[in-house]
Design a protein around this nucleic acid. Structure first.
Lengths: 142, 142
DNA sequence: CTTGATGCAAAGTGTTTGCAACTTA
DNA sequence: TAAGTTGCAAACACTTTGCATCAAG
């Protein structure tokens, strides 16, 4: 998983004549190893544990590259900050967000996707990406 | 439309022992008269035209009340700021967002909603509200 | 005349940027 | 050794808050 991510990040960087620095490698590893959704702040904290000189600025700059290279996907659950999740090698999915405990449940639903495409066609709209979030109470919080 | 909104805002305020000030009335009117989606900044600008003493703080504080009273709905299209739209007396709808020209198209799709409910049931999740946004190119921008 | 509301400016939050020093290819 | 990268702190954009003053009920 790390290997795969490093390979595609390296390729991405080379294609853009950018450099693979030790900071970028560290941040990438922490991002891939982090499970679930994490914020930029969390990623900085994790990265600092491996290399205490890594700065906030570098984390934000690297996050931009990781998004561009489709290794990470950015999500906004309306908590005032963005969160990230690994996307490379994973299927597309949407989210249920518990507004009491903050738990996030992922789901895949092809039928919904199909209807979205149909709706877009009806509107002569070309979908590039979408975001579906269902907010409410999870089974523990109901 | 204004009458209806003023009536329910008044009722909301009374229920909470809050006061209907001239500023709140002005901001409410501008919010209802504004068409489409508008930002806090835009609402401040509109409100200042009617009463130049109205402050940014009051607009933000009033927006909170207008959301709580279900007169406005908050949307985040990922442009870095929140936007608002009138919700009272309107049907629920979702959005297509053009990532080139910024155009926002509303649509209603009961079939999608039904599938969302079914998915939630499957996950033993109780939906309170949801957000579905399809990002891409509108017919003029394709 | 009590309680809540206002305007102001300052503080907050998450994120971005200018720049001189420093690495990578 | 040229070109991109870093850490730092300052700048940013949007939103919230503390407080003395003001107004609605």
């Amino acid at each position: 998983m790390i290997k795969e991510a490093e390979a595609s990040f390296t390729e991405f960087l080379e294609k853009k004549s950018l450099k693979l620095t030790s900071q970028r490698r560290t941040i990438l590893r922490q991002a891939i190893e982090a499970q679930g959704h994490f914020s930029a702040e969390k990623l900085l904290e994790l990265s600092k544990k491996k290399d205490k000189t890594i700065s906030k600025a570098t984390v934000y700059r690297t996050l931009t590259l990781l998004k561009e290279s489709n290794i990470l996907e950015e999500q906004d659950f309306g908590e005032g900050k963005k969160v990230y999740e690994r996307s490379q090698g994973r299927k597309h999915h949407d989210h249920l967000v518990c507004i009491r405990c903050g738990r996030i449940i992922e789901f895949e639903n092809d039928a919904i996707e199909k209807l979205q495409d149909r709706e877009a066609t009806r509107q002569k709209f070309h979908i590039v990406y979408h975001s579906l979030k269902l907010f409410g109470f999870c089974k523990n919080c109901s």
